[in-house]
Design a protein around this nucleic acid. Structure first.
Lengths: 148, 148
DNA sequence: GCATAGTGCTTGCAAATGCAACGAATATGC
DNA sequence: GCATATTCGTTGCATTTGCAAGCACTATGC
């Protein structure tokens, strides 16, 4: 049991490292977005009112709040997101997806899907892909994800 | 097919982010090693003659060669690894695991196994863990991993 | 053999990132 | 109500990291 657990975890780390390289390059080339920027937009895309606070984003992306603050600046300048203070709680500053941002995120998601399909194109059956997704999903069962 | 592929990839990213947090914290607390340092040592541990060149390490760890150079410095000072030039090719500088390093890597691997087992402790059957490992292993089939 | 190309490693520099401290605002305990 | 604790967001600072350039060495083509 401990042997198979270690195997699974090490393979997961290895797989992620390679996939991140692959996705970062391709996403950056197509949309000028980094992988992390794309994931941020996708989180906003499936959030109620297309918005999330910065700490909420930080938790979902597993990065620090300061990084979210800094990532948001250039994305605001590009018009992908807008800063929106909360009228009830003056501490909160939502990051809101704009219409431009929605268009970009739709595009980025399509690229994501294409890249993901490529990963499994050879030697994978639909059932295996679904199985992998379900097992990994179970690992994230107490997490907030992008998927609807 | 593209939908299930996307699901699997997004879950993989999400799972890795959480596991990296978990493992980084625990490994650092126990051995004073970062996750990446531990993985570097584990790669050396299963390599022929307990050694690898810096570029080889970089490829296996999916980091740049300069990062390997810099990571090696403090680990040499701690006596975990030693620099060993190749007599045949003066360009090569192997990173060699010392006896101290072997002891540490054995320890770190035990910690790794314990942490990995914890991840799956609840709601996972042995068969599911093995299945996950095999599917992820297939994603890495053309990669050089740590596992023997 | 020699010129050229390629490889391994290091270093300078810039970008990214986390941590801790801070200020502002809200929540809590009494 | 008020004092204290907590939360959110930002900023300064240090650390980490990759990229590009450079140096030393080796392989290749002729």
């Amino acid at each position: 049991m401990t042997q198979s657990s270690l195997t699974a975890i090490l393979h997961l780390f290895q797989a992620q490292a390679r996939l991140e390289e692959r996705f970062s390059g391709a996403l950056g080339g197509v949309h000028g977005l980094g992988l992390k920027e794309a994931l941020l937009l996708m989180h906003l895309h499936q959030a109620p009112m297309l918005r999330l606070t910065r700490v909420d984003l930080a938790k979902r992306l597993h990065i620090s709040a300061s990084t979210v603050t800094r990532m948001a600046v250039p994305m605001e300048k590009l018009g992908l997101v807008v800063r929106q203070p909360d009228p009830r709680d003056a501490r909160l500053a939502y990051v809101v997806l704009t219409e431009t941002g929605q268009a970009i995120v739709t595009d980025a998601r399509a690229t994501f899907e294409r890249l993901a399909a490529e990963v499994f194109r050879d030697r994978w059956t639909e059932q295996e892909i679904v199985g992998l997704g379900e097992l990994l999903g179970r690992l994230n069962s107490n997490q907030v994800g992008i998927l609807v």
